[in-house]
Design a protein around this nucleic acid. Structure first.
Length: 432
DNA sequence: TGATATGATTGGTA
DNA sequence: TACCAATCATATCA
């Protein structure tokens, strides 16, 4: 420290204690004398003079002078003093630049790229996002082409993104290394602290990250365009598969008195049709309205599904009868006087489902063999009615609709019974 | 290519 | 929040 103080004194205008440099490096005359060691003062003066004049010289001369300075015995002391001065004066600048909070926009972009599967692990995001979007836009099988196409395009975007990102990072690293080498080289002749180098690296990284942000923005835009093009449900509306429509129609016409599937039924239908629950809801919403608007038009369809349901039920229940005969010698009827007091078609549908190994509503599916036998009898009578109807008779009436054009207010499908229809009439809703 | 069918969306309502 | 009614947008068919 004494050595430094002496140097400071020798430098004249430089005062660490007062943080003042007084117009920079106030150079004393090369050959000043004020009572201190004249030789040492002269040394320092010489060094400073050489530094100040070095820029006026040719490159070769300068290199030679630099070498001379590097070897000078006073160089380390002078160097450390200058470093200290820089450290003190650089505080305010560093304080302002340190620890920038993360850019919210960059965070949003990162999150989106992660969610879309562009950044992050290869296996997840993209296909998951595509699958979700495909599921939302329609049937799984119908969307397989779009799905794979979407994934292929997304993979392309992902590849481009990562290639560009790699390029940027490589360029950033190369440039940083280059600058660091330069600064290290220069630090041999001028005071450059490691922190200063670090700060410079930070600046470079910030510059490159702003370029990266542009890349991320462009990638996000590309993904959004891709999504809208491939996955917009309206643009890419797909009709449900024939099988799905059959299942939905079967349910609709067998619950015609109250075509409002419960949440569980919707889920089950969605599963069976490979569509979403909301698509099931949409379908029933559309169907109810269109049916109500043009009942005549749907009559044929209703007859068709009624017959279909009847035949299927006949087969299913026939098997049940065989079972019941092995289990019970008697086949009593429903107990109601004379007529078949059947559960409504909803129950029948559910029973059929249960016979097929699936169940919509446990309580209803739990119908005993007796009711299945009753169903069989009724269905057989309905089938006969259907044969007649093929000759031109009206086979069903929209009895489920009330005077206001709405369906009867029923809480559950099984609660709906329509006593007005005769036993011979065939209604897709089999409640007679 | 126009008509029709059909899945999705939107705004209003109970 | 589920549903209705109107409407949009796309698919399908003659």
């Amino acid at each position: 420290m004494d050595e430094q103080a002496r140097i400071m004194q020798a430098l004249g205008g430089v005062s660490l204690a007062g943080h003042s440099i007084q117009g920079g490096m106030a150079l004393p005359p090369p050959h000043g004398h004020d009572g201190i060691d004249d030789g040492r003062k002269q040394d320092i003066g010489d060094i400073l003079h050489q530094i100040m004049t070095i820029t006026d010289q040719s490159l070769d001369e300068a290199q030679a002078k630099k070498h001379g300075l590097n070897c000078h015995r006073m160089k380390p002391a002078l160097f450390s003093v200058l470093c200290e001065i820089k450290e003190k004066t650089g505080l305010s600048i560093r304080g302002a630049q340190e620890e920038d909070p993360p850019d919210p926009q960059l965070m949003r972009l990162d999150n989106m790229l992660l969610a879309e599967g562009v950044s992050g692990p290869e296996k997840g995001g993209g296909s998951a996002a595509a699958a979700a979007a495909a599921a939302a836009s329609g049937g799984a099988s119908d969307n397989s082409i779009e799905h794979s196409d979407y994934r292929a395009k997304l993979t392309q975007i992902r590849q481009i993104y990562h290639t560009e990102l790699e390029k940027y990072e490589q360029a950033c690293n190369e440039f940083t290394t280059h600058v660091m080498n330069l600064l290290r080289e220069q630090s041999r002749t001028r005071p450059i602290s490691p922190k200063e180098i670090e700060r410079m690296v930070g600046i470079i990284h910030r510059k490159f990250s702003s370029i990266q942000m542009q890349l991320k923005q462009s990638t996000c835009e590309a993904v959004m365009i891709l999504r809208s093009r491939f996955l917009d449900a309206r643009r890419k509306r797909r009709n449900f598969s024939k099988q799905a429509t059959e299942i939905l129609n079967e349910y609709f016409y067998s619950h015609l008195s109250n075509p409002y599937p419960s949440e569980e039924a919707k889920e089950e239908l969605a599963k069976k049709c490979s569509i979403t629950v909301s698509q099931v809801s949409n379908w029933f919403g559309n169907k109810r309205i269109r049916y109500k608007k043009n009942i005549g038009k749907f009559q044929e369809e209703a007859n068709l599904y009624a017959a279909k349901t009847a035949v299927t039920a006949a087969h299913a229940v026939a098997a049940a009868v065989q079972n019941s005969q092995t289990n019970s010698p008697t086949t009593p009827n429903s107990g109601s006087s004379g007529s078949f007091n059947l559960p409504n078609s909803g129950d029948m549908f559910l029973s059929m489902q249960s016979l097929n190994g699936d169940s919509y509503q446990g309580a209803q599916v739990g119908a005993n063999v007796q009711s299945q036998v009753d169903t069989l009898r009724h269905v057989i009578s309905q089938t006969a009615g259907y044969s007649e109807a093929l000759g031109g008779n009206t086979m069903y009436s929209p009895h489920g609709l009330n005077a206001n054009g709405g369906w009867h207010d029923t809480t559950t499908p099984s609660a709906v019974i329509s006593p007005t229809e005769g036993p011979g009439s065939v209604h897709s809703d089999t409640s007679n």
